[in-house]
Amino acid sequence: MKSYVTKPFDYTLIPVDPALTLWRVSDKELAEHLETLSHNHSYEAEADTVQMGDSVACRGESKSSRWNRPVLLFYPGRGLCTKVLEDACIGARVGEQRSVITEDGEITLTVLKILRRSYMPVGDALVREEHIPGVETLTAYRKWYRESNEPTRRLHASYRCALQLIHGFAAKSEFSLDQEEKDAWLRGRVDSIYKAMVDAGMDPTIPKEGFDFLTEEQVKQNMYREYEGMFTEHVAKVYLAETMTGRTLSELVASRLSALAAEAHMTVSQLKEQVPAAVIEEKVAGDVAMEELAKTAYVQEKLEK
């Protein structure tokens, strides 16, 4: 690569937004999750008399075809229709009729079925319904839930922090940028994105403001200016990836090709045929820079707070 970092900024001086470091499962989240489990294991039973919160099936009779149906469903208290209609059957028993006057005229509702939902209470019995080996109590479930979720969340939090460090490093370091290399990189990106937009049925020449259509060249020039900062960030990522691993970008790409191909459900040959080398290099540089920064003591300390 002809472009390079001339003065790297010390990434440990870049602050990390505390919001990015959150990974632990909070008590609130656990409580909400258990509430959802309780709802998922809820069951319906037929009831005698309509109450708020029930589900009610009625036969509707009316001069209006909208309400003259063999089955109308009502859900008192949920606000799916007008309150007058929704509450019309409250207190009614199966077989009972109620009349309602609406803007569509009189509607006679005959209650056909009343279902009431019961929620399984949060406790050991609910947890056992999940059939998780070795998890028989609420205490065990809480421990299991944290152990199942926190490691991945911590990893993702470390990646979020790393990405913020990469942006900061790119913004504060100094670079020597080869104009030809930069132009070629940006042109490749702009051409790919323009083609993808057209292939997806979009017309990039439609202006965001005004009525004068743009030419293809004007669109591409605008995109070039918009993406200019990305080249600097790419040079930063290559620098970080190579410096932190002690390997060149070519070596890193070679070591990751099989995994990249598998991720894209392709063979390595197909990947090389269909994806431009610059795109693969960009992905590898970005991934490696992120992974290496994520492992640093600086980031790991942030996650412990």
């Binding site: 959802t36 709802h39 998922n40 809820s42 589900s55 469903l73 799916l80 079925k113």
Partner: peptide, 14 residues
């Protein structure tokens, strides 16, 4: 998805 799931628990016979 979670909104849809919760609605399915709330609104029987639909």
């Amino acid at each position: 998805a979670p909104v849809y799931n919760e609605a399915s628990n709330d609104l029987a016979m639909l």
